[in-house]
Computed example of a mutant assay.
Amino acid sequence: MESCLNFASSAPSRRSGMLRKHLNSPLLTIDSAPHFTSCKADLTAASSSIPLSNIRYSCGSLQSVSKAKWTSNHSTDYWVLRSTTQIENTITSNEDRSMWEACRQALSTFNFSDEEKDKILGKAFGLIHSPYWGEDRTKEVPKFEAVNATLDYLRSLNLSDDDLSKLLKKFPEVLGCNLEEELKANTKILKEQWGIEGKSLRNLLLRNPKVLGYNIDCKGDCMAQCTRCWVRF
């Protein structure tokens, strides 16, 4: 690598400056040592007999990009596979599969992919780990009636389907919160104690939807349940 940089710096031409700039680019440094060796060989040949304009100085950059792209896709595929396995380990009966598919259908209006629907439902009902629940969330297969009732209630808070789509991506666990004891109780608290309702409530929920799931107020004496504590409000 040092040879590459020394050669580039010694040549007086404008193209040499362009070459040095290319060698210092982040794209080049993505890949491993064998490609730098290849680069060195090309430049050595160039210094002896080949005009600078004919030097092949890609230095494996296309291979680097391909490698990075494959790694990203591989990571996504691994997440989907792992999440699917977690869900399938819980949903074992035909009845459970029918219930899961019905809940998927309840989310169909938001144009989520099947993977996104599974992620939302999985995080909401403990089938996929979520730091929001800590260790408290029991795994359960969601019921269509419960999911639909929650969505209907959220719509009643002046949230459009586009709003709900954003909210569910930001806070999928909302579907697993208790409708009466948490969602409705918390919106009542927001209205009565802070005067937040209507448009102000809509704006708050788009900014901080987790407020719907708060179920504890430590009042400054930490109870190690910070993700669901009113102290965060």
Rank of each mutant, 00 (worst) to 15 (best):
R137P: 07
W70T: 12
D31R: 01
G134C: 06
R155A: 14
T187L: 03
L206V: 03
E135H: 07
S16E: 07
M99H: 09
D163A: 07
R228F: 04
T37M: 10
L190S: 03
R137K: 15
T150L: 01
T85D: 01
R137L: 03
F7D: 00
G60S: 06
A106R: 08
T84Q: 03
T84P: 01
C226L: 08
G176I: 04
S75V: 04
R202E: 05
I189R: 01
E182R: 06
V211T: 13
L164Q: 15
E115R: 12
R56C: 08
N89T: 11
T187H: 01
T227D: 02
I30M: 12
R104D: 13
Y153T: 06
M18H: 09
T44N: 12
G122N: 07
W100F: 12
L121N: 06
S75D: 15
S113I: 10
N24Y: 06
N111S: 14
T76P: 00
G17P: 00
A146T: 11
G176D: 06
T138N: 07
D217H: 10
V80W: 05
D118S: 12
L201Q: 11
S113K: 12
N148K: 09
N54R: 13
C229E: 09
A45Q: 07
I87R: 01
L27F: 05
R207A: 13
V231L: 07
L62D: 15
V141I: 15
H22E: 10
P51W: 02
V231E: 10
L175P: 01
R20S: 10
R20L: 15
P209M: 02
E192H: 08
T90R: 09
W194Y: 15
L107S: 05
K143V: 05
F7Q: 04
D96Q: 09
T138K: 12
A224T: 13
C229S: 10
P12Y: 05
S130N: 10
K143H: 11
P172Y: 04
S53F: 14
S16H: 08
Q86G: 00
I196A: 04
V231G: 04
W79Q: 15
E173W: 00
F110S: 07
N89L: 14
I196R: 11
D114W: 05
E116V: 06
E101F: 13
N158Q: 14
N148E: 10
E140F: 02
Q225L: 03
T187Y: 01
I91M: 04
E180N: 07
L81H: 05
L175T: 00
E197K: 02
L19H: 09
Q63Y: 05
M18R: 11
D114T: 15
R82F: 10
I128D: 01
N24I: 11
S47A: 15
F7Y: 11
V147E: 04
N89K: 10
E197H: 01
A106H: 00
Y78W: 00
L205D: 03
N89V: 00
A45V: 03
F112R: 04
R155L: 09
S64N: 14
S38I: 03
V80G: 02
I50W: 08
A124P: 09
N6A: 07
S165H: 14
I120W: 02
N94G: 08
G134R: 04
S13E: 14
M18I: 11
T76K: 13
W100H: 05
T71P: 00
T138M: 03
T92N: 14
D118L: 09
